[in-house]
Design a protein around this nucleic acid. Sequence first.
DNA 1: CTTTGTGCAAATTCTTTGCACCAAA
DNA 2: TTTGGTGCAAAGAATTTGCACAAAG
Lengths: 135, 135
Amino acid sequence: MLESHQYLRQFSIKPSVQRSAVMNFLLKNRIHPTIDEIYMALSPTMPTLSKTTVYNTLDLFVERGAVRALSIDEKNARYDVDISAHAHFRCRRCGAIHDIFNLNAALFQAPETTKFKIDAVEIFYLGTCEKCSGN
Amino acid sequence: MLESHQYLRQFSIKPSVQRSAVMNFLLKNRIHPTIDEIYMALSPTMPTLSKTTVYNTLDLFVERGAVRALSIDEKNARYDVDISAHAHFRCRRCGAIHDIFNLNAALFQAPETTKFKIDAVEIFYLGTCEKCSGN
DNA sequence: CTTTGTGCAAATTCTTTGCACCAAA
DNA sequence: TTTGGTGCAAAGAATTTGCACAAAG
């Protein structure tokens, strides 16, 4: 939790109790959680926590570049504390989202075009994960 | 409209009046429309059309592989009749979505991994479009 | 007839907003 | 104190569901 506190400062985010708790959860649980998953995980130990605060907090984190919002899941927004260039895989059956690291850096380069100013690249893979394949 | 009729048959989709109208709209308007945009465009000439039918129709089209659902826009689902390998760009300001063709085919190759069975690749670029840059 | 498709209304889910209270500087 | 943060309840928007009627084979 103290680490989260310091971590937030790197992004010029004032660490409140709630913000540190959310960041701490993200740092310790690299599961690309939804708002609801974060809320459900924290509310037992933080009964007064409001879902609005979780929304506010993640909006702020995204704005400050501390986390990435993923649109890979059409149902809910998902959040990733790992802001390095990497891709994501979503299992169509269980819905789990996994990181894919060590891809060729060329994949994350924006194509040269005069029509758009590209500032971000998202790469998603869809399919079936190992666990779900065995069913 | 007759073309849409035939087009649907290629995907083993029974062409009802509504389905043909939706497919016709998609084929003639390559704007990656939302459900609501499709509904709004068609309802003037088809006043009894229901939004539920538009939802049903697009679910069917996606299931049969006639269109691709894009998750690039976190607000609404968007649909693309072009099922060839190409990427998408979304302007952060105006929200418009553009196709990006002629990218290196290697970009659309799934990485070799034993952990996942990858069946689809999505590449999204975000930034500012030419029109919005001039503001 | 029997199956499949359509359309309405209601329900659900996710997210945002308005506003009052609390906390920190 | 003044600003910023939090939390509740209500509102809003997108999508899904249940069910009755219509259309097609």
